[in-house]
Simulated assay, not measured.
Amino acid sequence: MRDIQHAMQTFLEEKVREGSERGLQLAVYYRGELIVDAFAGIADQASGTPVDGDTLFPVFSTTKGVAATVIHLLAERGQLDYDAKIGDIWPEFGVNGKEEALIRHALYHTTGIPHMPTGIGVADLSDWDKMCAEIARLTPQWPPGEHMEYHAITYGWILGEIARRVDGRAFSQILKEDICDPLGITDMYVGLPDGMEHRVALLEEPGFVPPSVDEDRPQAIPAWISPLHEWMNTPAARRACVPASNGIMSARSIARHYAALLPGGVDGVQLLPNSRMKLATAPLRLKDGVLLPRGMGYEVGQENSIIGPRLEAFGHGGYGGSIAFADPGQDLAVGFTKNLYSQNDAGSSIIGELKNRLGIA
């Protein structure tokens, strides 16, 4: 396996040299062993700081897979049931047409509240209680469970507050104590602690063009938070806790998290039993019978997906190109982080090269 480490290290360096990437990391567990721990490029062009294995990267919606794992851990302990009404746990939420919304609906992005509340701004994203109060007052755009529309940011406060209500601990504390500590992970955060700013890669998105939106209509990602890369380059954004979209972590940490969800786990730690993961990764079937490639909080495999074609594979990608996933059929877990967001993204070619080297179709 030493050959694959060298091969992938060389491949990453080539992507930096050709300009398709600036700074990036790739970590891969295969059959329970860390076989690739590669990194290349620059974390911050202004300072010239090189990327190393300890560099932290904002990963946007790749965070959602970790948030899902938190919920499934609580379910496995009997602290919550997927079919429990959210309003029974969080009474303020069970109003304005959300009375029948279930935890299952939140995990599947079917609660009907994909759009952010109006009348708030960037500063409010750091105020957990205010954001949860605003989310709780929202009126769903369809009856919960009837339609799936990606809850780009609201997902995080819905699930994070459910976790806090049933457990009593803040989301970031559950993440540290129940996922990071058992696995020896020291570089996975949703809410960056003081003293860590120097380790975070600076995001770049040359040629960014603001999307054309009607600012008078509710938006899943409001114009005032755009460009996203600029928001995540600010200390306030990094220190906030937004479990849908502002995780900051290394490729090593997110790959290890997914390795611990595979049968047998990693280094003697399996976060959830196989039976729980089978439930968690069951594809969404809507009331009209349509089957969608989305598990409870995870994306699942489908044809032409970077995760792979098998439904049993699961993970989540993020804005800009970060990705992390596990494939039980191949005993494979991957974490990929980066800081240059462009049309020349090399993520697919990097994962493709990895799978070719491993002989995985």
Rank of each mutant, 00 (worst) to 15 (best):
D127N: 12
I185V: 11
G160M: 03
S348L: 06
A244R: 08
L311N: 09
R199A: 13
K85N: 04
I179E: 09
N274Q: 15
G145Q: 10
D44M: 03
G320N: 06
S212T: 12
P328F: 02
V122D: 05
G329Y: 01
W128I: 00
H115C: 10
S250G: 10
I306T: 14
K98R: 14
T110G: 07
R2G: 04
T281Q: 02
V290Q: 12
L74K: 07
D167W: 01
T62C: 14
W90N: 10
K355F: 06
D83V: 00
P206N: 11
S305C: 08
E134D: 11
E92R: 14
I35T: 08
V95I: 05
E299D: 14
A106Y: 05
P273S: 15
A280M: 04
G352R: 10
Y30Q: 08
G48F: 00
R31N: 14
V290W: 00
G265K: 09
L138D: 02
Y319F: 13
G112K: 04
E303H: 11
A201L: 02
T62I: 03
R137C: 04
Y189F: 15
D127L: 00
G97H: 14
L271A: 11
K287W: 01
G112D: 05
P50Q: 07
G184Y: 03
E33G: 03
I225T: 12
H147A: 02
P235N: 05
L34I: 01
V209T: 13
I185N: 06
G315V: 05
R276Q: 14
N233Y: 07
R169N: 09
D345P: 08
F208A: 09
P144T: 02
H105E: 11
Q219M: 12
T110L: 05
L272R: 11
L332H: 02
E205K: 09
I113H: 03
I35V: 12
L291A: 12
G359I: 07
G308T: 02
R217H: 08
A282L: 04
S172E: 12
L107E: 10
L262V: 05
E303P: 02
G318T: 09
T69Q: 11
L261F: 04
S349N: 13
T186I: 01
S250M: 01
Q45H: 09
I254T: 06
G301S: 05
A38P: 02
W231K: 07
P309Y: 10
R285E: 10
L125A: 10
G321T: 04
E299S: 15
W142C: 03
A101S: 14
I307Y: 02
M8Q: 12
D331I: 00
Q330A: 12
D88Y: 00
A27N: 12
P50R: 12
D331M: 02
L286Y: 04
F336Q: 01
D267V: 01
S20A: 13
S126H: 02
A40V: 02
A236W: 03
P210T: 04
L228H: 03
A220D: 04
S342I: 03
Y189V: 09
K98C: 07
L203D: 07
V28N: 03
A75I: 00
A67R: 08
S212Y: 13
A163I: 05
L261N: 11
M188T: 07
I120P: 06
D178G: 05
